[in-house]
Amino acid sequence: MLWLGVAYLGALAALLVTALWTQNDFTGQVERIWTLENFQTLLGVEVYRTITLRTIGVAAAVTVIDALLAFPVALFMAKAASPRLQRVMVIAVLTPLWASYLVKAYAWRVVFATGGPLDELGHLFGLGTPGYGLPATIVTLAYLWLPYMVLPLYAGLERVPDSLFEASADLGAGVGLTLRRVVAPMLFPSFVAGSIFTFSLSMGDYIAVKIVGGTTQMLGNVVYDNSGAANNLPFAAAVATVPIVLMLVYLTVVRRTGALEQL
């Protein structure tokens, strides 16, 4: 706990402080002069605004796609599968989590490659592969974080008692109406719990973006490029505060739903 408190929070605080410093263009050294310049650049320059909005858009798209894909799987696991099949399916969903992150991103690079499987499949319909870019990035990220959405939804659905479904059906509601009016409100905290992962992980990603994103830039790339090649650590720190602030706002908002207890 001390470690977490001191090392982690200390490092975060130091990061915020660094964001307020400046860099000597000549020597590339960090100079301890207080300035808001980095945040002015971040907010004022068009490119960074676009990248920030794009990042939020991608993270939101990934979250929605994951929720749509995860829901039928979770519902099947929780309410339609036999106990034995349930156990097998939990393992089936968990196994890809242990497969290396890089390997999965790499696998999608192969899928999207020119002359790859998707390209061949597309030719049947007179299309090619969409190639590396924003769509490939969203698909890959949605793929990477899918289990993080399936598992909370599954746990949430397990807790919805069967009698509620029967009561709803007895009162004349069809399956669709029951899902919308009874299950959806009860499942919302689980969705939020899953979305914390899908949203946050997508927002900070820069590796998958580099592998399948072509020239697409996300916030993570800006942080990485500035801390590495450009060597402007204060600016990178300022950019990194964007996901921190967004996540803190998000966590505060969702605290009321009780989602945090489900993590």
Partner: peptide, 11 residues
């Protein structure tokens, strides 16, 4: 866990 790895890394 909730903050992206890149934040932890650069911090």
């Amino acid at each position: 866990i909730a903050l992206p790895g890149i934040v932890t890394g650069i911090a």
